[in-house]
Simulated assay, not measured.
Amino acid sequence: MSHITYPEFVAAIDTSGLTCPLPLLRTKKALQTVESGQVLKVLTTDPSAVGDFQAFAKQTGHIILLQAPVTEGMVHFIQKR
């Protein structure tokens, strides 16, 4: 059984129960509070969040370090550009 090592992060937000576009809007706001190169951890339960975050990263230049399923939904680690 493989073990996932999560990236270090400086801030975390929980958007569980929220649907598109709210997880993305909360993420954009949270990214404004961290420095370039720092990592934000985001917890989501919206199934469309995986694709939404990938498109967001492509448009903004932020880097998705990891998207992984967790018991509560999905966890996303986004490094600010």
Rank of each mutant, 00 (worst) to 15 (best):
M1L: 12
T33L: 13
L25H: 14
V50R: 11
A12I: 12
Q32S: 15
L66D: 00
F9N: 13
L43Q: 01
T27G: 02
I13W: 06
Q79H: 02
K29W: 11
I4C: 07
I63R: 13
M1V: 04
L25S: 11
F9L: 08
L25V: 13
Q79A: 07
I64G: 01
H76W: 00
L65R: 13
L18H: 01
F53T: 05
A57W: 03
E35W: 07
L25E: 15
K58I: 05
I78V: 09
V70L: 00
T27H: 09
Q59F: 08
V50M: 06
P23Y: 10
Q59R: 15
D14V: 11
V10G: 01
A55Q: 07
M74S: 06
V75P: 01
Q67Y: 02
A49W: 10
V42E: 02
I13M: 08
E72Y: 02
Q32R: 11
L22H: 08
Q79L: 03
G61M: 11
L43H: 07
L18E: 14
G73P: 02
Q67I: 15
L40E: 01
G51R: 14
A49E: 01
A12V: 12
A30D: 06
T33R: 15
A49K: 01
H3Y: 13
G17F: 00
L43D: 04
E35D: 13
L24P: 00
V75F: 00
A49I: 04
F53V: 00
L31I: 09
L31H: 03
S36H: 14
V39K: 08
L24K: 15
L18Q: 14
G37Q: 06
H3S: 13
H62C: 07
Q67H: 05
T44H: 14
T15G: 00
V39I: 14
G61Q: 05
V50T: 14
T44W: 10
L31T: 09
K80I: 09
S36M: 13
Q67P: 01
F9G: 03
I64Y: 07
I4R: 13
P7C: 08
L22D: 04
I64N: 02
A12N: 10
T33G: 08
I64F: 07
H3A: 12
R81Q: 06
S2G: 10
Q79V: 04
K80W: 05
L65G: 05
L66I: 02
Q54W: 11
M1P: 08
D14N: 15
K29S: 14
T15F: 04
S2Y: 10
Q38Y: 10
T19V: 10
V75R: 06
Y6I: 13
A30C: 09
Q38P: 01
G51N: 15
L40Q: 04
H3Q: 14
R81K: 14
T45N: 04
D14G: 01
Y6P: 00
T45F: 04
A12P: 01
V42R: 00
D52V: 13
Q54L: 13
A57N: 03
I4T: 11
T44M: 07
A12Y: 10
T33M: 09
T15D: 04
